[in-house]
Amino acid sequence: MSRKTRIAGWGKLSLALMAIVILWGVVLPRLERSSEVQARIKHLDKHGIDPAAMFYTDHEGMTRWEANIHEAQRRDPAAFW
């Protein structure tokens, strides 16, 4: 890699890092203060939902939801079979 390319690379990296700092440090926190986003975050927390879950085991609330479904099955087992 030539010196010029290397300097250009570091320049691009610095710009990208600045963009990340502005976006995550200023824009997103400001967006989070909006009532709509606040309500959404509170709603997800209240229900034990991990919106970024990759697998069912990532949800804190999964055990409770599953237990409720089992309870419904116990109330009327024939309804599901």
Binding site: H43, H47, A52, A53, M54, D58, H59, W65
Partner: peptide, 21 residues
């Protein structure tokens, strides 16, 4: 998986439980 639960909860508790399951 995460988006399913988030979307389900927008409809209500029953929808959340069925969607996640």
């Amino acid at each position: 998986t995460g988006a399913v639960a988030a979307a389900g909860s927008m409809l209500g508790e029953e929808a959340l439980q069925v969607a996640a399951t």
